[in-house]
């Protein structure tokens, strides 16, 4: 079990670190960084499922027999670029929140909303 699944477990640990940061930390920018950590864990998980032992990159040539699966790579390739695009939107929102509330701490923002 350990010999065959260790990669998945380490990647789950990575995802959970990201999830913890997203839930527990109050700073919006830190949450975005945590989201990136989580995201990279998911990316690596996808890619590791497509990996074949002794395989090679899925670029067909005559002297290669086994290839890793190309489909997860295609999905993740596009997901990385989409990920940075969404990160930019998140950062833009955080900047606007800072300009309106003067803080990027979640609790301070909520407090300012509740006090009339």
């Amino acid at each position: 079990m350990i010999g065959t699944h260790y990669v998945y477990w380490l990647l789950f640990a990575l995802m959970m670190i990201g999830l913890y940061v997203v839930i527990s930390h109050g700073n919006l920018l830190k949450k975005l960084i945590g989201l990136t950590l989580f995201q990279v864990g998911v990316f690596l998980f996808f890619i590791s499922i497509g990996k074949v032992d002794g395989g090679s990159a899925p670029i067909v040539s005559d002297d290669v027999e086994t290839y890793s699966h190309p489909l997860p790579q295609v999905l993740i390739l596009t997901a990385i670029v989409v990920g940075v695009a969404t990160l930019a939107v998140g950062l833009g929102l955080a900047v606007r929140i800072f300009e309106t509330y003067g803080t990027v701490e979640e609790e301070d923002v909520l407090e300012r909303d509740t006090t009339p």
Binding site: V40, F43, L44, I47, S48, G50, K51, V52, G55, S56, A57, P58, I59, Y67, S68, P72, Q73, I76, L77, I80, V81, G83, V84
Partner: peptide
């Protein structure tokens, strides 16, 4: 992460990750 992608045979992805 990009190094890991190369190790897992995902060279295109590694490339993107390094640049992004």
């Amino acid at each position: 992460t990009a190094c890991l992608f190369v190790l897992l045979d995902a060279v295109d992805v590694a490339f993107t990750e390094a640049a992004v």
